[in-house]
Write a protein that binds this DNA or RNA. Sequence first.
DNA 1: TTTTTTAACTTGTAAATACAAGTTGTGCCG
DNA 2: CGGCACAACTTGTATTTACAAGTTAAAAAA
Lengths: 235, 235
Amino acid sequence: MEQKHQYRKLYELLRKHILSGVYAEGSLLPSENELCATYGMTRPTVRHALDTLVKEGMILKQQGKGSIVRKPPQNIGILSIEGTASAIGVRYLKTDILQKPVAKMWPENFAFELSEAERDLGCIYMERLRFVEDVPVFYDINHLPNIYIPRITARSFENKSLFEILRQEYQIEILGGEQKLKAIKADAKISGLLKIPEGQPVLYIERKLTTNKAGFSIYSTIYFNSEKHSIFGSF
Amino acid sequence: MEQKHQYRKLYELLRKHILSGVYAEGSLLPSENELCATYGMTRPTVRHALDTLVKEGMILKQQGKGSIVRKPPQNIGILSIEGTASAIGVRYLKTDILQKPVAKMWPENFAFELSEAERDLGCIYMERLRFVEDVPVFYDINHLPNIYIPRITARSFENKSLFEILRQEYQIEILGGEQKLKAIKADAKISGLLKIPEGQPVLYIERKLTTNKAGFSIYSTIYFNSEKHSIFGSF
DNA sequence: TTTTTTAACTTGTAAATACAAGTTGTGCCG
DNA sequence: CGGCACAACTTGTATTTACAAGTTAAAAAA
């Protein structure tokens, strides 16, 4: 993708380098002045890029010392600002798409309040069941408004997560959100999907993620079997 | 408290005005140029202040339009970046301090990994039980390292929350953290404290909040009865 | 050798300026 | 009257320059 802004170019580059391990965890990034010289930018531009990385939690800055690389947040977790992907440990997570992304109308009694624009345009809907070592632990239902995202139903979601696509291709970033948590007893449907006895405690989460695109929010309902695993999230 | 930096002065002022309702939810802040003129600053300084508010979720900015005031995040919730205060609805929340803040050593088998500096200095410890309409719903255990915070055990915590004191008086801000969530069955101690039958599902949360002070993290363990209430958090 | 001071880094704050890009309302033109 | 174009806003990006403040390590002094 063609990058428009200098600070964003540097941001994407450093982000890639951190994630790929070019800069080790705990080590220092090149100083701001070095980055200026290397990439031919001025210091405010470099600082803008670094600020974005700080906001994402990729680095920590310390006055007088430098920019410290944080643990690559592969675990940008389920309860965190970046969504449901890779919450437990990516390597052991398998996903069944119970319902591929489709465009449809919003449900009648939707758990969240919708703006008029969102309601008019309908939504993209998908359901997933996630496995850890072939045991189902995680069932999530997702709704997002059918705007600004051409061809979203055609995308595979196999190599990239939904959030990664939104971030890179559409510059949609999650700003924050609201969520409601409960510990509930599994009912018949959930106990069937997660293969646990009825009445077993499960985590129940409803959440709404707001983005930098006005009127574009992502809505999720999640059921999680926390018997053997915990939900672990960085934020 | 004497403010050192111009951008921080403006930030604190606008923040206070938003929270006190001077700027209504959904309305627009004065434009950046107006703020420059009013407070005698240059635009980068004003923008720095506004950026801080955006980072906190107090406002949303939209190019070509202005800075939109968001719902005052009174519910900066339990699972969010700002801590355990006022998660359900402040007006109905009563707090029993089961253990006032005291300095002591870290527990033997602490759930989190500690740095050497943290371990050496000991910790501040406190326990609270929180009530909604005289029903106990929320039991939390908190540890923070005994550094940088003189006289913390003497403070009352009655009018201001711990996090508010840390932010205003010590410029300590929560950058992020990690948390682990489970839905578990209440054991004897918890069912006693929360006045529920043993075996009832409760939310169990362990979390570590990291701050802008290197080596200063806040550790909490939380039990929550989600039968009649949900944990609701903005982030 | 030990302690203190200093110098050379680092990031933080701030100014003045310029132009790009998105939004909105006004007013002209058809 | 309706629709389009433009002007007057707004925030976004970028340059250049300067000094403040925290950190570290080397140099100087005891």
